[in-house]
C-alpha cells in the first residue's frame, strides 16, 4: 500500500486521537466519520506531522480539534481559501478540509467553487446533514423545499443545492459520496480520495439526530437500503436491489430504473464510467423515492493540480534567475549616480 512502510507500522488509530474531549451530541453522525478518518490515517503511511486538517465553522468544523495532527479551525466558510494558501506554498503537506452544507455551500460557496475548479490538491469532506446544527436548527442550502424549521415556520421557499452537481459543475476532478453509517464504504471512498492528485470532493450524508433526525433514513434504513442505494463502481453496470435485480438504463436523454428479466438483461444497463462528465451529471440528479441514491465515486479524472503548477512556475523562475541578488533587483531599470 505505501512506500512509507515504517511510518505505517509505527502508527495506529490511537496516534491520531487528540487529547481533546469530543463535544458532538451523543448519537451524532460525526462520530462515525471521525472514527473512519482516524482509522484510515495510519494506513496512508504519511507522517503525522505532515497532515493538516482545516475547517470553517459549524458542528463538522470542530473536527480538527479531535485529530492529533496539525489543525486549523478557522472562520465560517473560508477553510478552502486558507487551505489553498497552505497547500500552494507547502506542497509537501497533505491537507484535508472539513466543512458542512452551511459552511461549504452557503457562506463559503465561492471558496469551495474556486478550490474545486483550480484543482488544488485538497481533500474536502462536506458533511451534509441538510440543517444548521450549531445555531440550533435553521434550514440550510441543502434542505428540501418546504422544510419547517425555526426560521421557516411556514416552510422554506428555497430550492436546495445538490452538492455533487455543484462540484461537477465546477469540474472537480474527483467527486464522490458516502454515508456516515456505512463505515466500510466510507473508508473505501476516503481512501480513494486520499490517493487522488488534485481536489477530492466527498459529500458525506450525515445524520444530525438533534435537529434533523432521519434526514436520510430513506437511504440508510437497513430494510430499504439495498433498494435505495446505487453503489457506483467504475466499469461495472449500474445494478442495485437486494437481489441485484434492478438497474439503470438510458431512456432518451434521461435515466430510468428497470427490473432485470422480461427481456431486460445486464447488457442493457449503463456501465459506470468515472471519466464521463455527462453520466456523472445525470447520476448526480438521482434521489429517492423515484431513484436510488448513488454512492461512491461519480468522477475521477487526471488534471495537473494547481499547487504543483504554482510551485513549478516559482521553481522555473528561480532556476532562470540563479542565486537571488537583492542588489541586482534594487538596481533594475534606469539608475543614475550622484557624486559626493
Amino acid at each position: 500500500m505505501s512506500e512509507n512502510a515504517e511510518a505505517t507500522t509505527a502508527l495506529n488509530r490511537k496516534d491520531f486521537v487528540s487529547d481533546q474531549d469530543v463535544r458532538w451530541c451523543p448519537g451524532c453522525g460525526d462520530y462515525s466519520i471521525l472514527a473512519q478518518v482516524q482509522r484510515l490515517m495510519p494506513e496512508l503511511g504519511i507522517p503525522r506531522e505532515n497532515i493538516v486538517f482545516i475547517s470553517g465553522i459549524g458542528c463538522s468544523s470542530r473536527f480538527p480539534y479531535y485529530m492529533n495532527t496539525y489543525g486549523f479551525h478557522s472562520i465560517h466558510g473560508r477553510a478552502p481559501a486558507i487551505a489553498t494558501g497552505l497547500k500552494a506554498s507547502r506542497p509537501d503537506l497533505t491537507v484535508w478540509v472539513v466543512t458542512g452544507d452551511g459552511d461549504g455551500l452557503s457562506i463559503g460557496g465561492n471558496h469551495l467553487l474556486h478550490a474545486l475548479r483550480r484543482n488544488v490538491d485538497l481533500k474536502i469532506l462536506l458533511f451534509n446533514n441538510r440543517i444548521y446544527g450549531l445555531t440550533k436548527g435553521q434550514y440550510s442550502p441543502t434542505s428540501e423545499r418546504g422544510k419547517v424549521t425555526k426560521s421557516t415556520p411556514l416552510g422554506s421557499i428555497d430550492y436546495p443545492l445538490h452538492p455533487i452537481t455543484v462540484a461537477l459543475g465546477a469540474e472537480a476532478t474527483f467527486v464522490a459520496r458516502s454515508i456516515d453509517v456505512e463505515a466500510k464504504h466510507l473508508t473505501s471512498v476516503l481512501r480513494r480520495a486520499s490517493e487522488h492528485k488534485g481536489t477530492a470532493f466527498v459529500e458525506i450524508l450525515q445524520n444530525c439526530n438533534i435537529f434533523n433526525d432521519g434526514a436520510f433514513a430513506n437511504i440508510t434504513d437497513k430494510d430499504q437500503k439495498a433498494d435505495a442505494q446505487l453503489v457506483l463502481e467504475h466499469g461495472k453496470p449500474l445494478l442495485f436491489g437486494k437481489n441485484h435485480d434492478k438497474g439503470i438504463r438510458m431512456a432518451g436523454h434521461k435515466l430510468e430504473v428497470v427490473e432485470l428479466g422480461n427481456g431486460v438483461s445486464e447488457a442493457d444497463l449503463l456501465v459506470h464510467d468515472e471519466q464521463d462528465p455527462a453520466l456523472a451529471f445525470l447520476l448526480s440528479t438521482l434521489m429517492p423515492p423515484t431513484f436510488p441514491a448513488p454512492v461512491g465515486v461519480f468522477r475521477a479524472v487526471d488534471r495537473p493540480p494547481y499547487d504543483a503548477a504554482m510551485g513549478e512556475q516559482v521553481e522555473r523562475a528561480k532556476a532562470k534567475l540563479g542565486t537571488p541578488d537583492l542588489d541586482a533587483l534594487f538596481n533594475q531599470g534606469d539608475t543614475w549616480d550622484v557624486a559626493p
Binding site: 482545516i54 486549523f72 478557522s74 473560508r78 478552502p80 481559501a81 486558507i82 487551505a83 489553498t84 494558501g85 497552505l86 497547500k87 500552494a88 506554498s89 507547502r90 465561492n110 471558496h111 467553487l113 474556486h114 504554482m310 512556475q313 516559482v314 523562475a317 528561480k318 532562470k320 534567475l321 537571488p324 533587483l329
Partner: peptide, 23 residues
C-alpha cells in the same frame, strides 16, 4: 517569482487574505 515569491490571484478579497494566512 525568481525571488521565491508566490502570487495567488484569489476569487475574492476574503480568499486573498485567507490564503495569505494559510501560507
Amino acid at each position: 517569482k525568481g525571488y521565491g515569491v508566490y502570487t495567488f490571484q484569489a476569487e475574492d478579497e476574503i480568499a486573498g487574505v485567507g490564503a495569505a494566512l494559510g501560507a
